[in-house]
């Protein structure tokens, strides 16, 4: 069985970020690139499924990013993925969600998979639309927000997390799965994994390799970014002066009550 995990390479979520007003793109210089944290959960799910399935199950990570970020993908190999495929091409610059999902799907068709696991969201773009668009382009079922999954006799059985509890659903393979954060904390890459990762392959792909019928990059984008703004600065808090502790507590209580928090 072949499990493919899509991984986005994103700026460190803990770093302060800035958007270049001319290009409307995130300034990447000086900010470390990491695996999209949600995708680490997807990879953890894949590695768990592989451990349970044993045999000839392999985990392949797939990423689409500028060439300079390629080595970041090695962390996924250090965590336990068997190999990586890296799609990079100047023609992809300026792709929106639709074009991104289309280019990815063309590459994924070439790579082939029984199960495709995708993080539910990316930390930088946060559209959450890529998994659905991918499933559409690939013509496979899209099972979202999985907290548990098992594969038996070519059938995928998934527990989906919902607001009110969870559902158990079943579907055929190939399929696309997105993971909830309850699937399991991503493992650390062990030292052995790190040392072994340098011997694993990151296979390069370009647009010429995957073949396109439709435009990608800025030409293929259906959506344009018009404006952006940082979150509004937090306003000043309210200061209450109270004669003593009891009066202070009363003031806080009144405030919480007014906000319907108690």
């Amino acid at each position: 069985m072949k499990i493919v995990v899509t991984v986005k390479l994103v700026p460190d979520p803990n770093a302060e970020k800035r958007i270049d007003s001319a290009t409307k793109r995130l300034v990447r210089s000086g900010v470390e690139t990491v695996l999209n944290p949600y995708d680490e959960y997807a990879l953890e799910a894949a590695l768990q499924l592989k451990e349970r399935a044993g045999g000839d199950t392999s985990v392949v990570v797939f990423s689409m990013a500028p060439e300079a970020l390629k080595e970041t993908l090695r962390k996924a190999l250090a965590m336990g993925a068997d190999e990586a495929v890296f799609l990079s091409d100047a023609g992809l610059e300026g792709s929106d969600v639709w074009a991104t999902a289309y280019a990815m799907s063309q590459a994924l068709k070439k790579i082939g998979f029984d199960l495709l696991i995708v993080g539910g969201l990316t930390d930088d773009g946060s559209t959450g639309a890529v998994p659905g668009a991918l499933a559409e382009h690939l013509g496979v079922p899209c099972i979202t927000n999985a907290r548990k999954a098992e594969i038996a006799d070519g059938t995928l059985r998934v527990e989906r997390e919902t607001d009110s509890g969870y559902q158990t659903v079943r579907g055929p393979l190939p399929a696309l799965l997105t993971t909830a954060l309850t699937f399991g904390e991503p493992r650390y890459a062990s030292l052995k994994g790190i040392m072994g990762a340098k011997k694993k392959t990151i296979a390069p792909l370009t647009l010429a390799d995957i073949g396109l019928d439709l435009a990608v990059g800025s030409d293929g984008a259906k959506m344009q970014l018009e404006a952006f703004a940082p979150p509004p600065a937090r306003g000043k808090g309210r200061t209450v002066e109270a004669a003593d502790g009891a009066a202070g507590a009363q003031a806080i209580f009144d405030f919480l009550k007014e906000k319907k928090l108690v």
Binding site: R74, K75, A78, Y188, A189, L191, I194, M195
Partner: peptide, 14 residues
């Protein structure tokens, strides 16, 4: 090197 950086970042995370 890439491995040294990876080991440093694993150690930092841990």
């Amino acid at each position: 090197t890439d491995e040294q950086r990876a080991i440093q970042s694993l150690a930092r995370e841990f």
